[in-house]
Design a protein around this nucleic acid. Structure first.
Length: 156
DNA sequence: GCCAACGTTGGC
DNA sequence: GCCAACGTTGGC
């Protein structure tokens, strides 16, 4: 079992959108970076991931999702109407993949990026690395537990 | 294969 | 809006 962190811009697709989907389940698609794609393909049913809001007023970890379907060819890559359409995508040799995730819970409170940065215990968390832009990253079990503990404490 | 130009991401 | 950090593109 591996823990992950999934990044999304709330203006495009936020935790409210996932909550509004049937069964709180939806495709995590549109990933167009090879390294992130490789992480997506390593996700297994039952793995859990933090839902992280990026590129917004208060970037923060806001919830927990569970992988309910492992990687399959990303349909948006083949859809000319999709903003994620890849003209070079070949259905016989898929390059891009999606997984399905289900919303497990919202955190008791959002844990902001500023808080994460202030925690020495989170040294090495990939999202905190300078210049990191990957939308899918693994999270060490100790980091996972630490962030959960932060979410249960009052906001600083 | 090199690398400059350009586009995107995303925090601030 | 600014800008650093990357990724991609395309000429050579």
């Amino acid at each position: 079992m591996t823990y992950w962190l999934l990044k999304s811009e709330p203006a495009t697709y936020g935790i409210d959108d996932l909550a509004a989907a049937p069964d709180g389940t939806d495709a995590w698609d549109g990933v167009r970076n090879h390294q992130a794609r490789n992480f997506l393909r390593a996700m297994r049913v039952g793995d859990r991931a933090f839902f992280y809001h990026s590129n917004c007023r208060r970037p923060a970890v806001v919830g927990i999702v569970e992988v309910v379907r492992e990687a399959y060819p990303d349909p948006t890559a083949f859809d000319p109407a999709s903003p994620y359409h890849d003209p070079r995508a070949d259905p016989r040799r898929p390059r891009w993949f999606a997984v399905d995730v289900r919303l497990v819970e919202r955190l008791p409170r959002p844990v902001t990026l500023a808080e994460l940065r202030a925690e020495p215990a989170l040294e090495g968390l990939l999202i905190l690395r300078r210049g990191n832009r990957l939308s899918v990253t693994p999270v060490a079990p100790a980091h996972w537990a630490h962030i959960l503990a932060m979410a249960r404490r009052p906001a600083p």
